[in-house]
Simulated assay, not measured.
Amino acid sequence: MGMEVRIAKTAGFCWGVRRTVDRVMEVAGAASNPVVTLGPIIHNPQAVERMRAQGVGTVQAVAEVERGTTVVVRTHGAIRSELQAAKERGLSVVDGTCPYVKYPQAMARRLSGEGYHVVVVGDAAHAEVKGVLSYAEGPCTVVKPGGPIPEIDAKRVAVLAQTTCIGAEFERVVGALALRHREVRAVNTICNDTDERQADARQLASEVDAVVVVGGKNSANTRHLAELCRQIQPRTWHVETEEELQPGWFEGCKVVGLSAGASTPDWVVEGVAARLRSLPA
């Protein structure tokens, strides 16, 4: 008798990622010219590789793109100057930015224009945060989740969040800044899917003997899911595919929970679930 596998109802592609991936495949199928994505379309190596097999390439900068190529902006959005460069070169651009990412971009532009010092709670090295910062028209500060909150020389501060930020971290930063500055404007730009997915994962972790979180090792939201689950269920593992699963991890387990990041394709989740079910309980 194999182990029971409980899959979180929010496991796998979120609405925004599915929308972008479908758009890329639609463009690739209809285009007679080359199609590339500006950076990896999503943070999942298996999905990127499958697209490459369909003829969709990846570039890191518009300067690398040859004339006549269609450029697709990835789910995380792009730096404003890169979009401008594509426009100036006359390249065909398909905007695959998730609407939930466009919101913090718009708010960074608007609030900085109103004189606020913009603070983004997130990872400064992440493509989404780089894109959001590029829309600000004044000074910005990035506060890393769990990290120190620097002194900011401003009376008016506006706080935004990376869409995959953990809610408690956004709350911590807003609360700390509220005591330091005369005015703090908090705009919760955390994606609803992120909140729901994290709540599902926490609930699941409390009900099972072990948890497997599936998704790219370079996916911020997947790493956050694994961190949250590990706080509740220490036997939590983050894998990209079923090949990484080790039977020894599940000794004595009868029920295993399975969650997956927003950029994890359904077929990868199903592959991990099938392998788990084949392991002896």
Rank of each mutant, 00 (worst) to 15 (best):
G2R: 13
I7T: 06
I7Q: 07
C14E: 07
R23Y: 10
M25Y: 10
M25P: 01
A30R: 15
T37Q: 10
G39A: 08
I41C: 08
H43V: 04
N44D: 11
P45L: 13
P45C: 12
Q46V: 14
A47K: 00
A47S: 10
V48M: 08
M51R: 05
R52P: 00
R52C: 03
A53Y: 14
V59D: 13
A61Q: 15
A61L: 08
V65F: 13
R67H: 10
V73L: 06
E82N: 14
L83V: 06
L83S: 04
K87H: 12
V94T: 09
D95V: 09
P99G: 05
V101C: 03
P104N: 06
L111V: 08
S112N: 05
G115E: 02
Y116H: 05
Y116G: 02
V119H: 01
G122F: 00
A124H: 12
A125F: 13
V129Q: 12
V132P: 05
V132W: 07
L133T: 11
P139G: 06
C140E: 08
T141A: 05
K144G: 11
P145E: 03
P148S: 15
P148L: 12
I149P: 07
I152W: 11
A154C: 13
K155S: 14
R156L: 07
V157E: 03
A161S: 03
Q162C: 11
E169A: 01
E169N: 03
V174T: 02
G175P: 02
A176S: 13
L177N: 01
L179M: 13
R182E: 15
T189A: 00
I190C: 02
L204N: 03
S206C: 09
D209H: 13
V211A: 11
A220V: 09
A226K: 07
L228A: 10
R230F: 08
I232F: 03
I232A: 04
R235N: 12
E240G: 02
E242G: 09
E243Y: 10
E244Y: 15
E244L: 08
Q246Y: 14
G248V: 00
K254E: 14
K254R: 15
V255Y: 06
S259W: 02
S259M: 11
G261S: 10
W267F: 15
V268Y: 09
G271Y: 10
L276M: 02
S278W: 10
L279I: 06
L279F: 02
A281W: 14
